[in-house]
């Protein structure tokens, strides 16, 4: 099915719309529909920047403050990647999103037999701190924040990022990084995992705990509904699994004696954009409300569902006809 299926009567009027996920909607809505579902503005929608953050965490959306632009980039050697980073920043990009090659993602050195044929492809190769130093040379790490798109070894990459920043004279308190660091999603949806689930969750707990104590501007985990959707989940399953995975990491950190408000604001999300625009908007809004109602109270720190990717399916080469 395409992004939406319309049924029509004999006069060509639309009688029903079914979105890709199978959800049926009416062609036209009126205030009577809001009344029928017991809609309460403050509870169910509210202003932008207000609990339950249905319309986002910024009071004026992105009208007074632009979003961060960080194109996923990185390939070949750290020198080539550094050149690319500088080109992107020179062209107006205000953040980085680092792509690592698969050997790095799987914790292998570039000279490992299993890495052959894949070194420097789909991302840059990192074997040691020296590679990180070259990749981030002459980047203003006090102004540019970095997404580190890596999971199984994300804790090591975050440590390297801090080490490089400090070497270049930036205090750890001012650097901003978001390692993807969602190991359960790798096990469920993407396949680049190294440790079994329990050990993976412990490692993520370590990263969150460390970031809360040492790296005040870092978001130690980005929960990826995106990959679950790409590997076959429906939109509803995508959000359900993503929030349940986040809950698992939260339970791990709570067990260590931290308070929920100490760290819940550090959670970032990466949700799939796919197919019908309105269905996608509704999914984002539902996800934000669910997250707020699960973990936030109306006066607590605003956690965010702040990041969205397009889908790999949408990015695939155009169909040859």
């Amino acid at each position: 099915m395409g992004v939406a299926k319309y049924t029509r009567d004999e006069k060509d009027r639309i009688t029903g719309v079914e979105y890709q996920s199978g959800i049926k909607v009416k062609p036209v809505y009126t205030p009577a529909d809001l009344e029928a579902c017991g809609f309460d503005y403050q509870r169910d929608l509210n202003d932008p920047g207000e609990y339950p953050f249905t319309r986002g965490i910024h009071p004026q959306g992105y009208r007074s403050r632009a979003w961060t632009m960080r194109q996923y980039s990185g390939f070949g050697t750290p020198e080539q990647t550094n050149e690319r980073f500088k080109l992107l920043i020179a062209n107006g990009q205000n953040g980085l999103n680092v792509a690592f090659d698969l050997p790095t993602q799987m914790g292998l050195d570039s000279d490992d037999q299993a890495a052959q044929g894949e070194v420097g492809r789909v991302g840059m190769a990192v074997d040691s701190l020296r590679d990180f130093e070259l990749a981030f040379k002459d980047i203003a790490l006090d102004k540019i924040g970095s997404g580190l798109t890596i999971n199984a070894v994300a804790s090591i990459m975050l440590a390297m990022y801090q080490a490089v920043a400090e070497k270049y004279g930036y205090r750890k308190e001012i650097i901003s990084a978001t390692p993807q660091n969602d190991i359960l999603k790798e096990i469920v949806g993407r396949g680049a995992w190294l440790y079994p689930p329990r050990a993976g969750v412990k490692l993520i707990g370590d990263t969150i705990e460390y970031s809360v104590k040492e790296l005040p501007r870092c978001n130690p985990v980005s929960i990826c509904g995106y990959h679950l959707r790409e590997s076959g989940a429906t939109p509803a399953q995508e959000i359900a699994y993503a929030i349940q995975i986040a809950n698992t990491y939260i339970d791990e950190v709570l067990q260590r004696g931290l308070e929920i408000d100490d760290f819940v604001g550090r959670f970032s999300f990466n949700i799939n954009i796919y197919g019908n625009l309105w269905e996608t908007v509704a999914k984002f809004r539902a996800a934000k409300k669910m997250w707020a109602r699960t973990w936030l109270n109306a006066t607590g720190p605003a956690s965010r569902i702040k990041r969205c990717f397009s889908s790999g399916a949408c990015l695939a080469a155009a169909v040859r006809v």
Binding site: E118, R190, G191, E230, G312
Partner: peptide
């Protein structure tokens, strides 16, 4: 073959 984990296709 190799290290990629995307196997929906």
């Amino acid at each position: 073959p190799g290290l990629d984990g995307h196997d929906k296709g």
